[in-house]
Design a protein around this nucleic acid. Structure first.
Length: 650
DNA sequence: AAAAAAT
């Protein structure tokens, strides 16, 4: 019996709305002591895995960074001033900051019910009044947006808008666009915003011409990015829907006509793409390839499994090739392109695609990631490679050792860019990007790209083009979402019967230990299963993932290491043994199934107490999923487990 | 809590 079904009309504007809905008041209070050290103590024994020193000065400080401290730091950032970037400081302080104060005071959004009895008095800066709500016309970011015709409105509005969105936006013909602004966005016009930094007129925007790529001197736009609170959410462990990035929506039906060749890729690449199973560009690819070839900075959002790797990989190879046309590929040459991903498995996977493309035109890639000896990677670098694909830790390590020189990197890609902007990733990523060539082109991709990437856009991107595919929200996909509400004591048994099936099943667990435990449990029940998590050495990680891919096992139990980007062709069931904490995680985990238009089912297992929180998260994810109470032996378990058979014929 | 560098 569906329990979270509400009349569609009453569903609040979802992640278009900047709002900062907390997860639970319980967790929040617990984590919000005055004293930093009052969080969970951890083991006192140094030999224990959970060991935590008593006096931990560095970690808590880091965790408690807030917007103010950050702002203070921005003001005196030595790297920017002393570094090789010759761009001016941001006009952050005098412009954006005050404006935010004013604009965020508008409140009263539809989602207030998400933050019911939250004790907010102890939350530093994110009280109600301070939150930007659906009063978007005030929102500061509008100023940075490189395009005007963005989908900045709640998805519910879409039905009456789509024509307008794509039809009158022939990309080559911009001149008829300004009119729309006044018609479609009257509220913005009327909103008087003294501090608003006007965007440059569309006509003096740079043409897509790599040769006159603008220097990063225009701070007007960037200050608007800055106005948004950054990843404070993660410091607070609160699931936040960041303001949605404005994007030019690309209409799938318009773009499908163009071939990869039409988009500017060479014959070799087109052939390899065909071999890779991509005879025609997917919409996101049709959207991004040209601007990337033209040298623009690009932000792109395409839902999980929509073909983002090729969308950046193919034009990247083409660009590197063009840049080196005629030049000899010298021994020991420096890399020209860099692709970073949050996990080693994803880096490996990207390399499989990019390497195939690169090889076909005589370029070389190498993987630079941790957990394996450096020697081979360093050896490859010494010989000379053109494209680096890897994870931040090892890349930075080799840079610091002087074994990797990024100074000639002219294209840098961040896959899962929003994730790469989270705590722990952001700073290494920033440091690495600062090593790339001054004017290097930056490409940021993710299925959940939002303003969390502001920290990077602000420093590294120049008037980026932003793309998404029209109408491609997650809910319009091919995934059937279900939630089952169980008694905790039934969990193990229900899980086992769910994974007892024919198709490939991916099970997500919150911790490494639980992932390991579940894999063993399934094995003991006669269902061969393997685990994938960060406690395994890299060889085992790679092997276990390969076992699922090859079909040697049908069940993989993973932590969120497998949540993003990993592509296994025919996973038809994703089970979340533990529900995710963030809506983004939900979207990425579910995106391991239903890829490239296939059908898939996602079953999330929760206990009764979790229902409300789960409903809220699904709302943020903009996903409709029925909730069902389930006990051991219920027919529904078998139905969910064997659903694919029914689905395929349907 | 997990991930990303070893040590």
């Amino acid at each position: 019996m569906p329990q979270n079904k509400k009349p569609a009309g009453t569903r609040p504007a979802k992640n278009f709305d900047p709002k900062y809905a907390p997860k639970t008041s319980y967790q929040d209070r617990k984590r919000r002591p005055d004293a930093v050290g009052a969080t969970k103590p951890g083991s006192k024994s140094p030999s224990h895995r959970g060991y935590r020193a008593q006096s931990e000065d560095t970690a808590p400080t880091k965790r408690r960074w807030n917007a103010d401290e950050r702002a203070a730091r921005e003001g005196t950032r030595p790297a920017r001033e002393a570094g090789s970037y010759d761009r001016p400081r941001r006009s952050f302080d005098q412009d954006a900051a005050p404006r935010r104060g004013a604009s965020e005071r508008s409140s009263g959004g539809p989602r207030r019910d998400f933050a019911p009895r939250q004790d907010r008095s102890d939350r530093p800066r994110r009280d109600f009044n301070d939150r930007p709500r659906q009063d978007r016309d005030d929102r500061p970011h509008q100023g940075f947006a490189p395009r005007r015709d963005f989908n900045d409105r709640p998805r519910q509005d879409r039905d009456d808008r789509p024509r307008r969105d794509f039809n009158d936006r022939p990309r080559q013909d911009r001149d008829d666009r300004p009119r729309r602004e006044s018609n479609d966005r009257p509220r913005r016009e009327s909103a008087s915003r003294p501090n608003f930094t006007p965007r440059p007129d569309r006509n003096d925007r740079p043409r897509r011409d790599s040769s006159d790529r603008p220097r990063r001197t225009d701070t007007g736009n960037r200050s608007d990015w800055n106005a948004q609170p950054k990843s404070k959410a993660h410091e607070d462990h609160i699931d936040v829907v960041h303001e949605r990035l404005q994007a030019e929506a690309v209409d799938a039906t318009i773009t499908t006509g163009e071939s990869f060749g039409d988009l500017g890729l060479g014959q070799n690449l087109v052939r390899v793409l065909n071999d890779l199973g991509a005879p025609h560009p997917f919409p996101i690819q049709a959207a991004t390839i040209k601007p990337i070839l033209d040298g623009r900075d690009v932000l792109a959002r395409g839902r999980t499994g929509s073909g983002k790797t090729i969308a950046f990989g193919a034009p990247l190879v083409e660009s590197v090739l063009r840049a080196q046309a005629g030049a000899k590929r010298d021994f020991g040459r420096k890399p020209r392109a860099l692709i970073m991903a949050p996990t080693r498995e994803l880096a490996l996977q990207i390399d499989r695609t990019v390497q195939a493309l690169a090889r076909s035109v005589g370029l070389f890639t190498t993987q630079i990631y941790g957990g394996v000896p450096q020697a081979r990677q360093v050896g490859a670098l010494r010989k000379g490679v053109d494209i680096i694909i890897g994870t931040p830790g090892r890349i930075e390590d080799l840079v610091n050792q002087g074994k990797l020189d990024l100074s000639e990197v002219s294209i840098a890609v961040l896959d899962e860019a929003d994730h790469m902007c989270e705590l722990g990733f952001l700073e290494p990523v920033q440091r690495i990007l600062r090593h790339t060539a001054d004017s290097s082109q930056k490409l940021l991709f993710s299925a959940t790209l939002d303003r969390e990437v502001a920290a990077l856009v602000d420093e590294f991107l120049v008037e980026p083009a932003v793309y998404e595919v029209a109408g491609e929200d997650q809910d319009s996909g091919t995934i059937d979402h279900r939630v089952i509400v169980i008694d905790h004591r039934d969990k193990a048994e229900i899980l086992t019967s769910l994974v007892d099936r024919d198709g490939k099943t991916l099970v997500f667990a919150r911790t490494r230990a639980y992932a390991e435990m579940l894999a063993e449990q399934f094995d003991e029940a006669g269902i061969s299963a393997v685990a994938l998590h960060g406690d395994l050495n890299q060889a085992k990680r790679t092997r276990n993932l390969q076992r699922l891919t090859s079909g040697r096992v049908n069940v993989l139990v993973a932590t969120d290491v497998a949540a993003r980007g990993i592509h296994v062709d025919d996973i038809d069931l994703v089970i979340q043994a533990d529900p995710p904490d963030e809506y983004k995680t939900y979207l990425h985990r579910s995106g391991r199934t239903g890829r490239a238009g296939r059908l898939g089912t996602v079953v999330t297992i929760i206990t009764r107490q979790r229902r409300r929180r789960m409903t809220e998260m699904l709302d943020r994810a903009e996903i409709e999923a029925p909730f069902d109470d389930v006990r051991i032996g219920d027919d529904l378990i078998e139905e969910l487990s064997g659903r694919q058979l029914a689905n395929v014929t349907a």
